[in-house]
Write a protein that binds this DNA or RNA. Sequence first.
DNA 1: GATTTTACGTA
DNA 2: CGTACGTAAAATCT
Length: 771
Amino acid sequence: MPIKTIIPPGSPKIMLVGEAPGEVEEAYGAPFVGSDGTTLKKILTQAGIFYGDCIITNCSNRRMRTFYADKKRLVPSAEFSQEIERLRQEIISTSPNIIVALGALAMYVLTGNEGIDNFRGTIAPCTLVPGKKVLITQHPKAVHFDYQLFYIMTMDFRKVAHEALSPTLPVENRTLCVAPRKQEAVEYLSYLYHNWEKEDLKLAIDLEHVTPGAHISWFGITHSSTYAMSIEFIQKRLPTFPEMDEVELWHWIGLLIGSGVPLIFHNGSYDVINLWDKGLWCKNVHFDTIIAAHAVWPEFPRTLGFLSSILLNVPAWKHTSGSQYEKGEYNAADVANTRAIYEPLYQIVNSDDNYKLIFDQEMSQIELAGFMQLQGINVNLEARDKLLTEYTTKKNEIETGLNTILKKNINFSSPKQLQELLYVDLGLPTQFKRRKSADDPRKITTDADALDKLFAETQHPVLKLLLEHRKYTKLLQFISTSVSPSNTVHTSYNICGTDTGRWSSSASIILDYGPGNLQNIERTIRDMYVPPTIGGRKTCWVQADYIGAEAHLVANVILDNKLMAAFDNGEDIHKATASFMFGIPVEEVTKDQRTVGKTIRHATNYSAGPGVIQRKLKIPIKLAKEYLTRFLNATPQLQLWHEKLRQELQNGRILTTPLGRKRVFMARWGDQLFRSAYAFIPQSTIGDLLNISFVDFYERYKDFPNVGCSIQLHDAIYIWCFEEEKEYWAEKLYESMHRPIHLPHTDLYIGVDFKWGYDWKNMDKLEINKR
DNA sequence: GATTTTACGTA
DNA sequence: CGTACGTAAAATCT
């Protein structure tokens, strides 16, 4: 039996179109009566829309086994065609101002579009009933798989509420000037140059490049959200303009961006730094829309397409860009939309002191992050080759050994072949992956933990060899990385790379050399990385790291007096932990007990269970549980704090760190969300503290020729200088890093440790005067 | 050829 | 049932 479309009395303005009824809907004879309906109602309420005011229907009001008659799912089946016709008639007879397509099927039926991620949040003309407008969003059932969509759909429905006021489609009022002739481009650039000050212009810029070399192929620029010019510089790796014309264009671009005109970017960390690499300096980087979005919604996607779908009423464009001309159109649309989202983002950032604080802080990091990306890290080729030989030999020996024992060749990097080997051929007990939640499916694994466990149980020699093989394979991955012609590797430090405010690091597309991520290099092979040689003289590295930073902060946040005192007195805090865990004097703590203290301290700060401790310490689960209980009993403040955080989350799902960074937690309510929350405060605070300090140091000394910034490692900073000046620069670095965190009861200062050395592995303690 | 999964390195 | 990341190689999809 078909269900019935709900049509409220009067002239309803909003029509919601789902897919087809499920079992529950069919039983009740009405759409959206199950759990999807509950989700939908919640979202509508959040968006200020009353469910009872909406027409509620589906693409099909009958349960349907197959919607389409063909394999490509383009031609509706006969019975589905009837239902589509019924929908068409209902749209005509009820004539809503806005139709909401819930999910990909409704989008396809109503608009003919495919690929929901490209269109979600945008308005498209209705093809089923021409003249009508359709807002595309996800089906409420998608929230079940990705809870964040609840918040995204809420934003979509706020747009629905606005669009319901009138039946007219948003007008496309943008002029995109694609691949202009030189004269036209120069006219625009010179107009901007001569008039930006008196007309108070703010310019958005966006680059497209071709690889390798990140050569700029399109330069998009605009002063307005309704106009954009995209200048084409490269077509199929050949220059578009004669050399003199291109020189003239770059001359104007250089004049303009160096003039001090406020510039707006979407991910300026790329554009500004690429221009810098090509010798062009952006004097006034006024606003980065990615940084703004990161300061405000760290958990949301930050692509231009997403932000435009949330903040603007422009048609979807990210799925276009095929032909050369379309690439220019795409670039022009990008820059116009960057200019457009700037306006609302500027308002939002400035509406809240915390947002503004974090925004300004992250903007100040662009130059430092970019400087380190372009400078790179030097590689000592001799040291690299030595490591390469050493580990290749070791890996080969193990392979030979394994092949002899197994009497056949398999790919030890293949999880599939290893499963076959371990759980079928050798008949070992099948191991399952550690799950994040009890609801997750059990998955067979051959990871290091599984091999460790199997070795402990069976002492099978193959397992040990496999583990070593893994280790050397991984090391060789790090060692055999590409190096630039000047023997450097480069990383892109991503200011907005995490939800916590820590930086991440990834492959540089401007200088594509090295392993990309320079924040996860294995310690044993770090000696292949060396500080630069300046004026023919070798420099050394000075490393400064915050001592036990996260634990120190947590101790002060939860007011753990014992631990606070241990930090204040400069004690070994892991020994101190072991001391009160085992109820023995600090002097009697053994090395093993210290390791236990260290592991438990770390694990409990992030609410780990006994399983983690069992694996880290390689001890029986019973002992791990005992240690855990002992620790938690000795530190009741920790659980009280975790409880307090959960309560805080219940009031709006927002946490604010002592340094003012806010994060909304959008995961489904439960343990995983709680754990992210417990980790957020220390991770974010220390990350921010270090970045503030690093920028402070960079800004003070960036023009000094004998010192430079090299590496950021979350809670450690590396700078290079000459050996005889290492104490001097370490003291300067200390001045930048010795910085208070304001807490209710005190201003907390995290201690700093210094080391120095001529490579990244062999570093010695460096004593300095800390005033 | 593009996308997803598995495994593993760092703080 | 530690969180936060990025990458290589294998596996899988189209």
